[in-house]
Design a protein around this nucleic acid. Structure first.
Length: 379
DNA sequence: AATACGGGGTT
DNA sequence: AACCCAGTATT
């Protein structure tokens, strides 16, 4: 692989893509711009790794702010390894796919403790690390270490599937796409070439309304030739999302709110959260409150869409004496186990720092809004 | 080969 | 509102 010199149309396409990148590269905080890259400069592997993990199934626009925050707070992989996992999870809140954050910490710890803080440089070694799969291993090897690796992400999948009008539906079609990308990938500068392809996929060869008029490889594109650009890549039909219902418990006392830590597996694993009725483990929640009391039920305060189902959330509000709740603490702790563990009283004023996943943050902000309104009416 | 796993951006 | 996104791990 990669022994033969690239010839023919593949070489022509690759050259046009590379040339386009010189003047049209997106400026991104983890990236070395093409003119400096061509002078031999490489980005910090820690930055490449962190950005690649964040970018898994996540748009560039959503990642930039988190990336800046993370590298300011943990400037090196060793700093990250020295952090508490709970702080990393809280900082990740809102970005989704929280297994990434747990694997981030695992990987930082491994690299710091077993590799002396130096990331491995080969694709196969990178593939061993937690949270790094075939795409990310290839991307880091190419971008951070200048290795020739065949990088295939969703952008490149789309670009290449259109160029060759590959009609085998994904994921089976990925084999032909990877082979075609292998043909295009140069011996030197595979990292910039991959990023050049990704930029074209993102900015030109977009999923909907591709901008073929400004595409540097339009003349080579089999999909464009037939005007059926948007029919590639071919994907399997998607399934309908079922709707589930669940109930969250807003347990407030003396300016504090009761939060739990969710179990280590399943939805939003390991994240701080409002206590709930175990909707994640069941078709629907069971609505059972964690203790007897005067609960006010507010129906359907939040709707939230996950990958494989939607959730309609009711909020049960309990406002009472902290001492009364504490006097029944053993039962409260036991019942909190249904959705998590380690219940804590969290000051309402510091709720934004709790690191709640979006689903709970939305519910909390609904509750805070209602609380202010109620207090105003009492005056 | 299928499924679990979030949530924001874009059209 | 549907579709998509610098995928990975588990089943």
């Amino acid at each position: 692989m990669g022994v033969d010199k690239i010839t023919g149309e593949a070489a022509e396409i690759a050259a046009k893509i590379s040339a386009h990148y010189v003047d049209n590269a997106r400026q991104l905080p983890w990236r070395v711009p093409p003119h400096r890259s061509q002078a031999g400069e490489r980005p910090d592997p820690y930055h490449v790794w962190l950005s690649e993990i964040m970018l898994q199934q996540t748009t560039v626009a959503a990642v930039i702010g988190y990336f800046e925050t993370f590298i300011r707070r943990w400037p090196t992989v060793t700093d990250m390894a020295a952090a508490r996992e709970s702080d990393i999870l809280a900082a990740w809140a809102g970005l989704g796919y929280y297994a990434r954050a747990r694997n981030l910490f695992k990987c930082a710890t491994y690299v710091t403790e077993k590799r002396d803080g130096i990331f491995p440089q080969t694709e196969s070694e990178l593939l061993e690390l937690p949270g790094i799969g075939p795409y990310t291993a290839a991307a880091i090897a190419a971008i951070a270490f200048g290795q020739r690796a065949v990088v295939v992400d969703a952008n490149i999948e789309r670009l290449v599937a259109r160029l060759h009008a590959i009609s085998t539906p994904l994921p089976a079609g990925k084999k032909a796409i990877r082979a075609a990308m292998d043909d295009l990938t140069p011996e030197d500068g595979a990292g910039d070439f991959a990023q050049a392809c990704m930029d074209i996929g993102a900015s030109v060869c977009s999923a909907r309304s591709p901008k073929c008029a400004i595409c540097p490889v339009r003349s080579h594109c089999r999909a464009h030739a037939t005007g059926k650009m948007e029919e590639f890549p071919v994907k399997p039909p998607k399934k309908a999302k079922p709707v589930r219902t669940g109930r969250f418990f807003w347990i407030e006392s003396a300016g504090n709110i009761l939060l739990v830590t969710r179990p280590g597996k399943g939805m939003l694993a390991g994240m701080r959260a409002l206590p709930d009725d175990n909707w994640a483990a069941q078709r629907n929640g069971h609505g059972q409150a964690p203790f007897q009391g005067n609960w006010q039920i507010h129906e359907n305060v939040v709707q939230h869409s996950f990958t494989h189902f939607s959730l309609e959330v009711d909020l049960a509000v309990y406002h009472g004496d902290k001492i009364a709740i504490n006097s029944d603490e053993s039962r409260l702790v036991d019942l909190a186990e249904q959705v998590g563990h380690a219940p804590v009283w969290w000051p309402l004023a510091q709720l934004p720092e709790a690191g709640l996943p979006t689903l709970f943050a939305k519910s909390a902000s609904w509750a805070m809004k209602r609380k202010k309104k109620t207090e105003k009416e009492l005056q």
